[in-house]
Every structure is written in structure tokens, then in C-alpha cells.
Design a protein around this nucleic acid. Structure first.
Lengths: 154, 154
DNA sequence: TTAGCTGCAAAGTATTTGCAGTGGT
DNA sequence: ACCACTGCAAATACTTTGCAGCTAA
């Protein structure tokens, strides 16, 4: 199993247009700009962060930067259709990242209970739980394994 | 490996008093009330939720219910000393639960990306990653495995 | 007695919502 | 033309912080 293989731009836009058609939703300029910004991101981002990235892009394109409320609304939509995945790492702000190509994509983190330091881990171990979920009717699965405790310095 | 074996009340209070001594901190009435409330909880709780539970208890004891700010301060302290563990399940509010007896305690959840429905899972699979972390100097480890996707109804 | 802790109130940050106007399809 | 979507602004939710008085050790 492979980790961290994100969707390509083409795959992402195709997934979006399929969902849009299905939902009777529209491909607006802010929507497109936000997805482009998300795809360029090298790290998970917050709503605020995505808006700033879109802001930077909007100078290239002729459109204006999207409003924060619009960012939140689209983040929710992208998450719902599986384009982005919400990643809850200890902090107070919700952060997102582009979903992986594989259904069984997952992430490993370590979060220090004291200083909040986060470290990404490499090792992978696929859980047998996922197959149980699939049998129950869950779909579009993603999973995340997070460790917490105290880091060497704390 | 066993799951969901929470600390007993005695163990919890002993862990607290040890930490208090070490930190030069004090066992105050609100602190005690909050821990008692947390220990009685049958489900993970938010700051608001813990305050309400403490409120209920405070009628039995003769003390008053703690202020919300005090709840947040103690939640942070309890989390730091490993008495409680912060559990980030999709939502916007931080929730906590009483830590397990074992160091390698973990939780399995499924969170629906659309309706937010959360389901607790039973299966366990210990990750080999934890031993790597221990070698690196991390301690007081806990881990959590969370699945997300769409539930049968969505 | 001396800090740590608390309640209260105010500030700060994150996220959501109402609404009138704009723009995809 | 219809209706989803947007920007703007206000509302809401959550969490943190400052401070003066209280109290455990």
C-alpha cells in the first residue's frame, strides 16, 4: 500500500465536475480558484491559509480573491465530495488536505500533549477494520492514525 | 491488548496527586469536582459538557459549579498530565475522555464526511509505529485510529 | 504567608448565517 | 430566466486572558 499519493490536477477537476453535475451545482470562478490553490499546496492548510493561497493565484488570473465565508462553504463541499479530507491534528483550527488517489489512504502523526509539536511519521500499517466497514455499507473510506503523548523535550 | 479499560477512580486520583506534588500545584475544590465528573462520564465530553456534569455533582457536594474558564484550564492540565486525552472527532468542539489504564490505549471511530455521524468501532490492531516512537524518546503514548467517509445513509 | 487557583468579564479567534445582488447553465 | 453562489456584515461558538480576591499548603 502506498501513502501520500495525492490526486492529480486532472483527476481532481474530473471528480469535481462529476460531483457538480450530480448535485446540480456550478463551477464558479471562486470554486475553481480554490481548488487550484488547494492542489498547489504542499502542506495541509486552514481556511485562512487557503484563502491566502487563492489570493496569490488571483493576481495571475484576473479574478478577485474569494471571501472567507466562501472558502468555508467550499471547504465543506470539497470535503463532502471527497476532494479534500479534513485532518484534525490536536489544534483549534480545522485543516484540510487534498485527498489521496487510493481509497485507503492514511496519515500518521505524533502530537505532543504538552507543547503541541506535530511530527509526521512514515510507517504504514493497514487496518483490518476497513474491510469490516465496507461490508457495513460505508464508502469513500479514508483513515488516519494519530499518536499523542509527550515528546522527548517535554 | 485491551481497549476501553479506563482508569479507576483511585488510580485517577493517585495520578492527579502525584502530578500536583511534582508541579507544585494544588488540589482545589473545583479541580476535584471536575475530575469526579469526568470519571462518572459515560461518553467523551466537551468543556461545556463537563461543566454541566460538575454542576449536577455540585448540588450533592456543597461546593458551587466551576466557571467555564476554570474548566478549560483544568482540561488542559488534565490532558497534559495524561489523566484525560483529547479526542478530535471531526466536529468543531474539542472533546476529551478519561485516559485508559494502558499506555497503548487507543480508539477507533468512523466519522461520516457528510452528516458527521460518529460510530465507535470494536476491532483493534496495534501499530508497530509505537515502538519506533518509544525508541525516539516519546513517552506517555496514546494513539487513535479514525476512519472517515460516507455512511450507508449518505 | 505565599503563590497557585478561581470567578468574572472582556478579548480573541474560528466558523456560520442572512440577505441582496451576480452569474452559470 | 432560474436558482445556486458570492461578498459583505453580523451573529454565533469556542477558547483564552487579565485581574483582584481566595485558599491550599
Amino acid at each position: 500500500m502506498q501513502c501520500h499519493h495525492r490526486l492529480t490536477n486532472e483527476e481532481a477537476f474530473e471528480r469535481l465536475s462529476t460531483a457538480l453535475k450530480r448535485d446540480g451545482a456550478r463551477l464558479t470562478a471562486p470554486r475553481k480558484l480554490l481548488l487550484e490553490a488547494a492542489l498547489k499546496a504542499k502542506k495541509p492548510f486552514s481556511a485562512e491559509g487557503l484563502m491566502q493561497m487563492a489570493e496569490a493565484l488571483s493576481e495571475t488570473e484576473k479574478s478577485a480573491a474569494p471571501d472567507l465565508a466562501t472558502v468555508y462553504r467550499n471547504l465543506a463541499y470539497f470535503n463532502e465530495i471527497g476532494l479534500l479530507a479534513r485532518v484534525d491534528v490536536g489544534g483549534e483550527t480545522a485543516i484540510y488536505e487534498v485527498s489521496s488517489k487510493e481509497q485507503d489512504h492514511h496519515h500518521h502523526y505524533f502530537v505532543c500533549r504538552k507543547c503541541g509539536k506535530t511530527e509526521a511519521l512514515e510507517a504504514c500499517s493497514m487496518s483490518p477494520v476497513e474491510s469490516v466497514l465496507k461490508k457495513k455499507g460505508y464508502h469513500g473510506l479514508t483513515h488516519r492514525l494519530e499518536f499523542s503523548g509527550l515528546c522527548p523535550g517535554c
